[in-house]
């Protein structure tokens, strides 16, 4: 079974269509060229599907980095406890 971190990394790679060399855990919308609004909704869809959660409109807008995704998943109790 994939760990949550592996699942999230894979959701980022497919959602944002990232190149292999990209270091996913440090990614932010500010720095990733691929992170446009089309990719953004793909990423939201990938996270919702892989973690079986539904992001609120506020979550969708807050999602601007890998770290933010972890924060959202923690709030939704879909990430191992801190």
């Amino acid at each position: 079974m994939a760990t949550p971190a592996e699942k999230l990394e894979s959701a980022f790679r497919s959602g944002l269509a990232l190149p292999l060399k990209c270091d996913v855990p440090t990614i932010t919308a500010e720095t990733a060229k691929q992170w446009d609004s089309v990719a953004h909704l793909q990423l939201v869809g990938a996270i919702e599907k892989d973690f079986g959660v539904e992001l609120s409109p506020g979550d969708v807008m807050d999602l601007d980095s890998y770290a933010a995704a972890v924060g959202i998943l923690q709030r939704l109790n879909a990430w191992p406890g801190v």
Binding site: A29, W35, D36, H40, L41, G58, V60, M61, D64
Partner: peptide, 9 residues
């Protein structure tokens, strides 16, 4: 700002 960002709105 991207249309999916809180900043845009």
């Amino acid at each position: 700002a991207r249309i999916t960002s809180a900043e845009f709105w």
